[in-house]
Amino acid sequence: MKNRILGTTSSLEVSSIGLGCMAMSHGYGEPADKKEMIKLIRTAHDLGVTFFDTAEVYGPYTNEELVGEALEPIRNEVKIATKFGI
């Protein structure tokens, strides 16, 4: 996986492909199986993904909790983008 600097005034380096996690718990019907989504997130990391996107509204809070649980063992190796306030 290639990495890149996020933005033009930052030194924050992330994978060139990120994983948007919204559909895991919000927006497209019933939430997916939590264990399967944790496995998916960790597999993405194993494949080189270091940038994950979530938001408070994807649940609410459910998605952030899912992403946090999945990434807890590797939290120092990843970057998480989250959005708040509608």
Rank of each mutant, 00 (worst) to 15 (best):
A81P: 04
T9P: 03
I86K: 10
L6W: 00
T50G: 01
T82M: 07
L66V: 05
T8A: 14
V57H: 11
K34W: 14
L71I: 01
E77K: 08
I38A: 02
N76G: 07
S11R: 08
T43P: 13
I38W: 07
F52Q: 03
S25Y: 05
T62H: 13
E36W: 08
M37Y: 09
K39Q: 13
L12F: 03
E65I: 11
M37C: 15
L19S: 10
T82C: 11
L19G: 03
E56H: 13
P73T: 06
K35D: 12
K2C: 08
S10I: 02
M22R: 07
F51V: 00
T50W: 06
R75T: 00
E72P: 00
G20N: 11
T62N: 13
V67W: 01
L66E: 00
M24E: 10
E13Y: 03
Y58K: 07
L6S: 04
M22F: 11
D46F: 12
Y58G: 08
N76D: 14
P60W: 08
I5P: 04
L12G: 00
F52I: 08
G48W: 13
T43F: 15
N63I: 02
I5K: 00
I80K: 07
M22A: 09
K2F: 11
N76E: 07
I80T: 00
E13R: 09
L12S: 00
L19C: 05
F84L: 09
A44I: 01
G7D: 12
I17H: 05
G48S: 11
R42L: 00
A70N: 01
M37R: 13
K39N: 14
Y61I: 12
R75A: 03
R42Y: 06
A23H: 14
A70M: 08
V67Y: 05
E77M: 05
G68V: 02
P60T: 12
S11L: 08
D33E: 14
V14T: 01
V57S: 14
A55F: 03
G7W: 02
R42V: 02
G7F: 03
S15Q: 09
E36T: 08
T82W: 06
E77T: 06
I86A: 15
V57M: 15
S10K: 01
R4G: 14
E56R: 05
V67P: 03
E72T: 12
A55M: 02
T50M: 02
A44G: 11
G27T: 10
E72L: 15
K83F: 04
I41Y: 07
F51M: 00
K2A: 14
E30M: 10
N3T: 15
E13L: 04
D33A: 07
E64Q: 08
E56C: 03
I41R: 04
S25V: 04
L40H: 10
E56S: 12
E77D: 12
D53H: 07
G29T: 05
V49A: 08
E56A: 11
P73K: 09
L66S: 03
A81V: 02
V49Q: 05
A32P: 10
T82Y: 13
K79Q: 11
I86Q: 15
S25T: 07
G20A: 10
E65H: 15
